[in-house]
Simulated scan of single mutants.
Amino acid sequence: MRTGCETTRFPHMRGLLLATTENSRTRKRFCGVQWDDNLKYAIDTYILIIKETNMEAKLRRADIVILASAHNPSIMAPQWLKDKSLIVEEPTQFVHTPDFSLFESESFLLVVDNQRMQITVKKQDNRSVESLANIASNYLKLLPHIPYKALGLNFVWSIEVDDGKELPKIELNINKSDLMSVFEGREIECGGIIYARKEPYMLKVVIELRGEDVIVHNFNYNYELEGMSVEDIVKLVNNFLTMKEDSSSIVKGLYSIGEK
Results as ranks from 00 to 15, higher is better:
S229T: 15
A62M: 05
N154H: 13
P98Y: 04
G4K: 11
I75W: 12
A42P: 00
M13E: 08
L86K: 06
K252C: 13
E199L: 02
R210Y: 01
A42C: 04
V234R: 00
P91I: 09
D246Y: 14
M1A: 11
D125G: 07
S24R: 10
G164V: 06
R14K: 13
T92M: 13
E226T: 10
L241D: 10
S69F: 00
E199F: 05
G258P: 03
D63M: 04
I43N: 07
C190Y: 01
E166H: 08
I215V: 14
M76C: 10
F219M: 02
N175R: 06
I50H: 08
G185H: 04
R29G: 00
G191N: 02
K252D: 01
R9L: 07
V230G: 03
I75Q: 11
T26Q: 09
D63Y: 14
N173Y: 12
Q34K: 08
L67N: 12
E106I: 05
W80M: 12
V214S: 05
G4Q: 14
F100R: 09
L67F: 06
E208A: 09
E89D: 15
P200K: 07
S247G: 15
T45E: 15
F240M: 06
I233C: 02
L203V: 05
M55G: 01
E224L: 09
E56W: 02
A57E: 03
V65C: 00
Y221W: 10
N38L: 14
M117Q: 11
Y221P: 00
T45H: 07
K122R: 15
K141G: 10
T20R: 13
L109E: 11
V216S: 10
Y201A: 10
E171W: 05
T7Y: 04
L241R: 13
D113N: 15
K198N: 12
I174W: 10
I64H: 03
A19D: 01
P147M: 10
T45L: 09
R197D: 13
N54W: 00
K82Q: 15
I207V: 15
H217A: 08
E89I: 08
C31Q: 06
N222C: 00
I159G: 03
L225T: 06
W35K: 05
R29K: 11
